[in-house]
């Protein structure tokens, strides 16, 4: 074969990989913070719609709403609600962490800040659990 006839094929282009957002092959605390922030964000949007549905019963009078709240006293739903508390606290606190980072505050301590966020989240969840059960 002569050089004129030879051509190396084009390199293989990678596809967009959504999995990287949710992959657990993380390199550091910041990666985990990102993953959790994204997951909790998505969960909260879903919850927002659910919350709208629950409140929509208000428009159908007292009975409809009160029937639903009785349902919500079930231990399973209470547990979900506890999860909700954890999700909200995490998303909120980490949101503050992200805001501080963007203002170039505590960038060197971002890992420690993540651990603080996690600690407060867990603590709040435990306190909430004591109130609920």
């Amino acid at each position: 074969m002569l050089a004129e006839e030879y051509k190396r094929p084009e390199p293989l282009w990678p596809k967009k990989r959504l999995g990287e957002w949710f992959s657990i092959a993380k390199k550091g605390a910041g990666g985990w913070a990102f993953l959790l922030h994204r997951l909790t964000g998505i969960l909260l949007v879903l919850y927002l719609f659910l919350h709208f549905y629950v409140l929509s019963t208000l428009s159908r009078g007292a009975n409809a709403y009160d029937n639903l709240t009785v349902l919500m006293e079930s231990p399973f739903l209470l547990l979900l609600e506890l999860g909700l508390v954890a999700v909200i606290v995490y998303h909120g606190l980490n949101g503050i962490r992200l805001m501080l980072l963007t203002l170039n505050v505590g960038v060197k301590q971002q890992k420690e800040m993540f651990w603080v966020v996690m600690a407060i989240t867990i603590l709040t969840t435990i306190i909430a659990a004591l109130f609920m059960f």
């Binding site: 074969m1 002569l2 050089a3 030879y6 190396r8 094929p9």
Partner: peptide
């Protein structure tokens, strides 16, 4: 020899 494609060819 192109080690990427494992093909041999001639350059004049």
């Amino acid at each position: 020899r192109d080690h990427v494609t494992e093909k041999d060819y001639d350059i004049g």
